[in-house]
């Protein structure tokens, strides 16, 4: 049973991790949900004691109520956070008109290039004493044309 539960946790975690590596925001979030499911399952298994529900009148053996309380808290927290992520994903979508992470990465690179251009001095010309400070200027990459979507 221990092995089975561990395997269950592992499969959920792995599947979640796999989805988080996809380039689609929705898949990524679903992956996160799977991972939090894995965590919750693990917390529940941490109280692995078979028995009746911990409700009075008690049976001979009850399950661990503490892990249940912990699981409940964890479930709610991960639900709240996931809902937040979803609405953030929505805003990301609205501002980039895409749910593709590659699109976001591209935007980030363009931003980085733009940062580069803001009146930077040439780091290569650092403190050259009487010699000539040739210094090969970094060529700032032109922002790639955004390829048409769809």
């Amino acid at each position: 049973m221990i092995l089975a539960l561990s395997l269950g946790v592992a499969v959920l975690f792995g599947a979640g991790a796999y989805l988080m590596l996809k380039h689609d925001l929705i898949r990524l979030i679903i992956g996160m949900v799977l991972i939090s499911n894995a965590a919750n399952l693990f917390i529940m298994s941490a109280g692995l004691t078979n028995g009746a529900a911990p409700i009075y009148p008690l049976g001979d053996e009850t399950t661990d109520p503490l892990v249940q309380a912990m699981t409940l808290t964890a479930i709610v927290i991960s639900f709240a956070v996931t809902a937040l992520v979803l609405s953030l994903a929505y805003r990301v979508y609205v501002s980039h008109l895409s749910v593709d992470i590659r699109e976001l990465s591209r935007a980030e690179e363009m931003q980085a290039d733009r940062d580069d251009e803001v009146g930077q001095p040439d780091p290569e010309k650092l403190g050259a004493p009487y010699t000539d400070a040739e210094g090969d200027r970094r060529t700032v990459a032109q922002p790639p044309n955004k390829e048409a979507q769809r």
């Binding site: 988080m20 992520v85 953030l88 994903a89 990301v92 980039h96 976001l104 935007a107 931003q111």
Partner: peptide, 12 residues
Amino acid sequence: PRQFRSAFIFIV
């Protein structure tokens, strides 16, 4: 948009 992007990276 930049802030949304950063926030998303941060959160995930």
